[in-house]
């Protein structure tokens, strides 16, 4: 019962944070509400006994990535008059909601079809570093390996798009 209350609280918080991210005009407020989403997602992972993911979510996403984003926003020193005037943003918002409603109805139908299960706590160190490591390096070796290619592309891309470019003859 207690877990259910926690779940609803975290879920509501994460959605509120996401809505705030879209609706706040100032990037700093948006970043702050994104942190709310990140932390409540960490809470949801904890409820699922995914210890490692919970810790990573807090350290990497809510910690490292968000501080980078906030650092950049502060670095740019964005004032209210730097922001573009968005006319008709509520019109676009209404349009977006109109598109999403049928998909949301569909999703609710899909979720309702999930058979009800009694939630039990999984044992045997599920979600710990060792278990995740074993699954990652045994069952999911290929995705793990090809992620290295993805990171390499991202790295070169950052150098190419943002770095100083020395043009060749």
């Amino acid at each position: 019962m207690f877990a259910e209350v926690l779940f609803i609280a975290f879920a509501a918080l994460s959605i509120l944070g996401a809505i705030g991210l879209i609706l706040f005009r100032h990037p700093m407020k948006g970043a702050m509400s994104l942190i709310v989403t990140m932390i409540s997602l960490a809470g949801l992972y904890a409820l699922l006994s995914a210890e490692l993911i919970f810790v990573l979510q807090l350290i990497v996403y809510a910690g490292a990535i968000m501080s980078l984003i906030i650092f950049i926003i502060m670095f740019l020193n964005i004032q209210d008059n730097d922001l573009p005037i968005e006319e008709g943003r509520y019109l676009y918002l209404a349009g977006g909601i109109a598109v999403i409603i049928p998909i949301a109805c569909f999703m609710i139908k899909v979720v309702k079809s999930i058979p009800a299960h009694q939630a039990t706590i999984v044992g045997n160190g599920f979600g710990g570093v060792k278990e995740v490591g074993l699954v990652l390096f045994q069952d999911w070796l290929l995705p793990f390996e090809i992620v290295s290619l993805l990171l390499l592309v991202a790295l070169i891309g950052a150098v190419v798009l943002a770095g100083k470019r020395r043009l060749l003859k």
Binding site: I146, V147, L150, V153, A154, I156
Partner: peptide, 21 residues
């Protein structure tokens, strides 16, 4: 080559990220 959704996702992202650049 991939017949699995997660690897396919990573492959899509490798491809797309490179194309964005």
């Amino acid at each position: 080559l991939t017949h699995e959704l997660i690897s396919a996702f990573i492959a899509i992202e490798i491809m797309s990220l490179a194309i964005y650049i």
